[in-house]
């Protein structure tokens, strides 16, 4: 997978708000492409992944509280 394809996949999963799949995808595939990524691509990844991390943490917190 190229870094462009990788970023497009992240954007698509982010748009679908499929956050669990998104984090699983980047942890599985990310290490194979990280050396190809540009600073601009990392910026775009950051926006999508930060959002996913935040929302998932809130969901986990609700489960723990329950």
């Amino acid at each position: 997978m190229t870094s462009e394809e990788y970023v497009r996949s992240v954007q698509e999963l982010g748009r679908r708000r499929d956050y669990s799949s998104l984090i699983a995808f980047v942890e599985r595939v990310g290490p194979d492409v990280e050396d190809q990524l540009t600073a601009e691509q990392v910026r775009i990844l950051r926006v999508h992944l930060k959002h996913a991390d935040m929302v998932l943490s809130e969901a986990r917190s609700r489960v723990n509280t329950a």
Binding site: V10, I23, V26, E27, G30, P31, E34, D35, L37, T38, A39, V42, L45, R46, H48, L49, K50, D53, M54, S57, E58, S61
Partner: peptide, 30 residues
């Protein structure tokens, strides 16, 4: 050891987490 892009986050439970991968890539990216 989080994937690059998961650079840093302050979580609701008050943990502040930074990605080792992101830190390692800083010299190449910036």
């Amino acid at each position: 050891p989080r994937a690059v892009g998961r650079n840093a986050v302050k979580l609701e439970d008050c943990r502040l987490v930074l990605s080792a991968t992101y830190l390692r890539l800083l010299p190449r990216l910036y």
